[in-house]
Computed example of a mutant assay.
Amino acid sequence: MAIPGEIQSVQRAVSVLRAFALADEWSTSSLGRELGLHKSVVHRLLVTLAKGGLLRQDERTGRFRLAPAMVSLGRRAEHSHDVLGIARPLLQQLVEASQETVSLGVLQDDHGVCLANVDSPQSMRFTISPGDSFPLNAGCVGKVILAFQPPPFVEALLAAGPLARFTDRTLAEPAALREELARIRAQGYGFSDAEITPGARSVGAPVYDADGEVRYSLVISAPSLRLTDERVPAFVDLVCEAAATLSRELGHLPATGGGPLSRSSDVPAV
């Protein structure tokens, strides 16, 4: 029986996927008996999941097995768990050093998502919650990740339609965004001033994984009255050092004489 608020078809699909923890493959009839569902219902679920790339059907036997995409999803879930375990102490240290809110963002499809955060201890603070979604063209969580994606990814995002605009400072024009992304790559960090929320500022740095790819951004966010122009360089140093540490702990080895863990020593005026 479905729990109130659940979608029955999704609940059944979850039951189907969980059944593959019990056996490598299932026929429609045997899985129906296992789950207590009619054979026709199970068949529709299996075919739908196969079309979605989560299962595959053996053409000879007609039985269903998990598709390679499930292996990829499992590895990503395991990796995310490891990232959180490694990142949380670093986030806490960065909050203690900055006294401002710190968040770890992750790339998800065409947007950024807050994976973890620690709020500022100050009563007036910028609050971010795990699961919050951010556009890639505005704010440090998204811009820092986008800056280090392959050019085809960036161009596909720009070609998908008008970029979201939140304030008069949002980078919603492709030319301006390309210029900003180039600046972030050159400097090794990003800066945002009221691009999503008026009165909010942030500085962020890329976090590299063991494959040398940027899927994460580490960001300090604060009210503009505290994150003043004079304090930006110190905050940039803090976030870049923490991002470099997290990258190393995730297994990234920067190239000698430069690379993702080094940045320009000159912090431009903001």
Rank of each mutant, 00 (worst) to 15 (best):
T228Q: 08
G32W: 07
T48H: 10
Q99H: 06
E180V: 01
A176R: 11
V203H: 08
A186I: 00
R231E: 15
V42Q: 06
S217V: 06
V102K: 04
S15F: 11
S129H: 12
R248K: 12
R183H: 12
N117T: 13
P233H: 05
C114V: 14
L136E: 01
S217A: 15
L22F: 12
R75F: 15
E34C: 11
A244M: 00
L261A: 01
L227H: 02
E100I: 03
A176H: 11
A160D: 13
V267D: 04
L17M: 15
H252W: 11
S15I: 00
H79L: 14
E230A: 15
A200Y: 06
G36M: 04
R18K: 13
A175G: 02
A50D: 06
Q8P: 00
S221R: 00
M124P: 00
H79G: 07
C240W: 13
A69E: 14
V113C: 05
D132N: 14
V203C: 11
L104W: 10
G258F: 05
P121A: 03
L253K: 07
C140E: 08
A97N: 08
I7C: 10
L55A: 06
I86H: 12
D119Q: 13
G139V: 02
T167N: 13
L136D: 01
V16S: 10
D109P: 01
F191K: 02
V14M: 13
S29I: 07
I196T: 09
V239I: 07
A87K: 02
M1F: 11
I145W: 07
A243Q: 10
R56T: 11
P174Y: 08
D109L: 09
H38G: 15
A19V: 00
H252S: 09
H79Y: 15
V47F: 13
G190C: 06
V214L: 05
T256R: 13
R76E: 15
D193V: 00
D109G: 05
T197M: 10
S40M: 04
L17A: 09
L225Y: 15
R33F: 11
L49D: 04
E230L: 15
E155N: 14
A156T: 07
A243V: 09
W26E: 07
F153N: 07
V214E: 03
L54M: 14
A67R: 05
D24S: 13
Q149N: 09
V106G: 10
A222I: 00
M1Q: 07
R226K: 08
T197C: 07
V113L: 05
S202R: 00
A160I: 03
R75G: 08
G142I: 04
R60A: 15
G36N: 03
S103E: 10
Y189L: 09
L31M: 05
R75C: 09
L261D: 12
G212Q: 04
E241L: 11
G52V: 03
L54P: 09
L115H: 05
R248H: 11
R201E: 09
N137R: 04
Q149M: 12
G139E: 04
H43G: 10
H79E: 15
L49I: 01
R231F: 14
D209F: 08
V267S: 02
M124T: 06
L158C: 09
R125W: 01
L225D: 06
A176F: 03
I3G: 09
E195Y: 11
R125I: 00
K39P: 01
P151C: 12
D119G: 10
E173M: 04
G139P: 04
L163T: 03
A156V: 00
G259R: 03
Y216F: 15
L136S: 04
L49G: 06
A186D: 13
L17P: 12
